[in-house]
Design a protein around this nucleic acid. Structure first.
Lengths: 345, 345
DNA sequence: CATCGCGATGAAAACGATTCAAATGAGTTA
DNA sequence: TAACTCATTTGAATCGTTTTCATCGCGATG
């Protein structure tokens, strides 16, 4: 019952097993990795010793010898946003199916954190990385490139032929959202955007303006309110700013659902009726959108599928290293209309 | 601009740097880890070579030599539950402050996944683990024990002196919730519980019954409806079952907010008014509870703080391995009353 | 002048696994 | 009996670091 070994010890190594089974370390290794090479007798003898000693192989020694790990790195912008959790989930499932583990990290939209974690990925020699980049973070990715670690962009179109990527057509997403508001008759529209340094935020605005063009409405109809972050707190804050605008917009498009939920709270608290006084449209269609105080109209992105697809692209790139051609898979967004945007007549 | 090395190559190693800087590998290692030992001249020469070659040290080689990693393993029950994400966030912050990375894994409440990930932790020789166990999973933890990897239970009281743990007094939590419903005059109460194999679910029921005792109400007042999982889907499902009960309960206590949100959706869809027809109380007080269709009364648990505290306990155990005494830190739950449970008179 | 001390550097041995080529040994064939 | 085959098993090299201990050069001291 020596369950708790001396804390100075290094634990059970392959040598200990070899000694216990009275074979060489090579045989133990073969028993674990190429059982077909061994006689049945030897194999069971080794496995019994493994069992008895509770041997667990050292992944670091393994990796060192192999030169690479069996891990993918996954860096997301914000784990408190269910949309990213959804992508992570899809990616993990797909990776496990390929026998790969996933190392999940959260950059919290901070460049410093992003660089820290990408450095960690490089140190760990991950087999590949899935990255939701903060800024035009081509620089921080050079650490991966230098070590020949392939990466795929998640929720972001790769520029040129830098890498594979999985994205959603955000221009169309913005067009759907604002087109819907215009259709409902709104002519004073606010776009509550996250930081304009994010391409997603820029593209959704472009889409919003396109919708104006299509409806023959002047671009002035859309006021942009920029927030620093993309979370509920920022939404609450943006809500206050929204109420200070004059004329006060009657249709509001939020860069994501968290912001929309924050805005909704502020509006409800201020006695502003949704959708009657202000119609609201979010983005991502997270589970909680449907359960909101006023069920939220939102632009749906297929989060889990995006994660899974990105993993598949990455795995394919890893496998066919030589003749790999980068590609971008673009998903179509889908408008899900709920009560928050439907004005009663 | 040899950014992309030959894919067969192993990348830049410490030897390459040594050659480039015309020093020994030992000197390169020292430049990185003990710069005070070197002359300023040599140091800058080495660093320049590191920079130029884009050298990143191999964590696996490092670990192999050191016998342990600089990582903590964190295994949560369900990453799609913001409560666990909150704990993970708190834990990560605390770990980063101690220069430790966190490997985040999601068991999805499945024993097989739990065992897989604990095995992974052992293979990686993580420095320590934070675990939210599914069942009475002392068995799967033996793999950690055997390798002398310390672990701390998160959101679960450790039995005996097995390990440190961080928990919330779930009995009190249940008592607060049901006490509140009883105070509001409800005498037909349902407890929508997750699997009774989870101590949290059992304790909350115990608390519910205690509240009955205190109010001089018979235990029969509380009907238990058990669900298999603890997510929104399960909640929707439980909502239907709830509507089939007769007499139909007027006060409902849910084992967590996700279930409560699911129930809420079913009730709203069925035209049942909350709180007038049915009063609803959730658990965890996730951010989305306040933004729900009907703002949700909930029992708050300090998620981030729990994660941070658990990390601190673990770090302390790692540091003072010899004279460590396990301890349990128990937080107090707090009832946050919102509209979902307040019957208008 | 010989010796000592000291700062700076390097040679070599670990760490734990995998793998390849070589050794062993039993059975088969000429 | 000698040569050969084939299935098992093993010795030794290797991966990239860190660390210990020895060495080297040089100014200072006796």
């Amino acid at each position: 019952m020596a369950d708790r070994p001396d804390s100075r010890s290094r634990g059970v190594s392959i040598k200990d097993v070899a000694r216990a089974a009275d074979v060489s370390v090579a045989t133990v290794s073969n028993a674990l990795n190429h059982p077909e090479l061994l006689s049945a007798d030897t194999h069971t003898r080794v496995m019994r010793a493994v069992e008895k000693l509770g041997y667990v192989r050292s992944e670091s020694a393994r990796q060192l010898r192999a030169g690479q790990s069996r891990m993918l790195g996954l860096l997301v912008l914000d784990m408190r946003n269910p949309f990213f959790v959804g992508m992570a989930h899809g990616a993990e499932q797909a990776a496990r199916a390929d026998g790969l583990g996933v190392m999940l990290c959260d950059s919290s939209q901070e460049l410093a954190a992003e660089e820290f974690y990408l450095g960690l990925f490089a140190e760990q020699r991950v087999r590949g990385a899935l990255v939701t980049p903060t800024d035009s973070s081509t620089t921080s990715l050079s650490v991966l490139r230098r070590h020949g670690i392939p990466y795929v962009f998640l929720d972001r179109v790769a520029s040129g032929d830098e890498a594979c990527s999985v994205s959603v057509d955000d221009v169309t997403g913005g067009r759907l959202a604002v087109g819907h508001l215009l259709e409902q008759g709104h002519r004073d529209i606010a776009y509550l955007s996250g930081p304009m340094s994010l391409p997603q935020c820029r593209d959704r605005r472009t889409g919003a303006l396109q919708a104006c063009d299509e409806a023959g409405v002047d671009h002035d109809a859309v006021t942009v309110v920029e927030t620093e972050r993309l979370d509920v707190d920022a939404g609450r804050d943006a809500g206050s700013r929204l109420l200070g605008l004059s004329p006060r917009p009657t249709g509001v498009f939020c860069a994501n659902d968290l912001i929309a939920l924050g805005v909704l709270q502020t509006l409800v608290a201020a006695g502003v009726a949704v959708p009657d006084d202000i119609a609201l449209v979010g983005y991502d269609d997270i589970d909680f959108a449907a359960a909101a105080a006023v069920p939220l109209t939102s632009v749906r992105q297929p989060a889990a599928q995006m994660g899974a697809t990105a993993t598949e692209l990455l795995v394919r790139e890893i496998a066919g290293a030589e003749r790999h051609v980068h590609e971008n898979v673009e998903f179509a967004p889908e408008l899900v209309v709920r009560r928050s945007s439907i004005t009663r007549h």
